[in-house]
């Protein structure tokens, strides 16, 4: 009978321990997820800054590059798409689709901007323009900050996803409403993943 009692107390302790452990996992998951959202809000600040700079840039460039209407329109359009993408992603940072479309929009914007800057090389007057120099500097520094903030975001996403997939938490993650992995944010063209085409002609 005492054996029975001891087993029972032991079981009680075990269940309590398990409960406490589960609470710990739950809290850690929540904390990690909040951290991702915090990191995202940092990117948001920098991206907004970037988006705000572009109309000024286009305004400055317009006078010099009237022949490059198409490029300028492409920049404006890419910028508007990126603004929309950011709004969507900010409203729903948990959705992989929203993050992916934000990344695509930002990639498009970067592409359009780099075409614009490449063309601007041909206009010495524009390069000498004080305003232009300032805007370029500001854009570059914002770009740096974006990539740094994005790195932080991706670090926290990785930490969350990894924690979720390790052994004890993986059992509970679904139960606690952490079913989906968060999506990494990649702005650069995915050159690494492209298989080089080799021709044997």
């Amino acid at each position: 009978m005492t054996v029975f009692l001891t087993i029972l107390v032991g079981m009680g302790l075990f269940v309590l321990g398990l409960l406490a452990y589960g609470v710990g996992i739950f809290n850690r998951l929540v904390t990690l997820r909040n951290r991702i959202d915090n990191a995202f809000s940092q990117i948001e600040v920098q991206l907004k800054r970037r988006h705000d700079l572009i109309p000024n840039l286009v305004e400055t460039v317009k006078g010099y590059m009237s022949h490059e209407r198409e490029t300028l329109e492409a920049v404006i359009q890419a910028r508007n798409q990126a603004v929309g993408g950011l709004q969507q992603a900010a409203g729903n940072p948990g959705s992989a689709g929203a993050i992916e479309s934000l990344a695509a929009a930002e990639r498009g914007l970067s592409g359009a901007l780099s075409r614009l800057f490449a063309l601007a090389e041909a206009y010495p007057d524009l390069k000498a323009n004080q305003n232009m120099a300032q805007l370029t500097e500001e854009l570059t520094s914002t770009e740096n900050k974006v990539s740094f903030a994005r790195q932080a975001y991706n670090d926290s996403v990785t930490e969350y996803n990894t924690y979720k997939q390790t052994f004890p938490p993986v059992i509970f993650a679904n139960l606690f409403g952490h079913a989906q992995d968060r999506q990494l944010l990649q702005f650069e063209g995915e050159k690494i993943h492209q298989v080089p085409t080799v021709s044997f002609n």
Binding site: T31, N34, R35, D37, N38, S41, Q42, V45
Partner: peptide
């Protein structure tokens, strides 16, 4: 702070 739903002020 994070578990209380805090957002870091940048």
């Amino acid at each position: 702070a994070e578990s209380l739903g805090g957002r870091r002020i940048v």
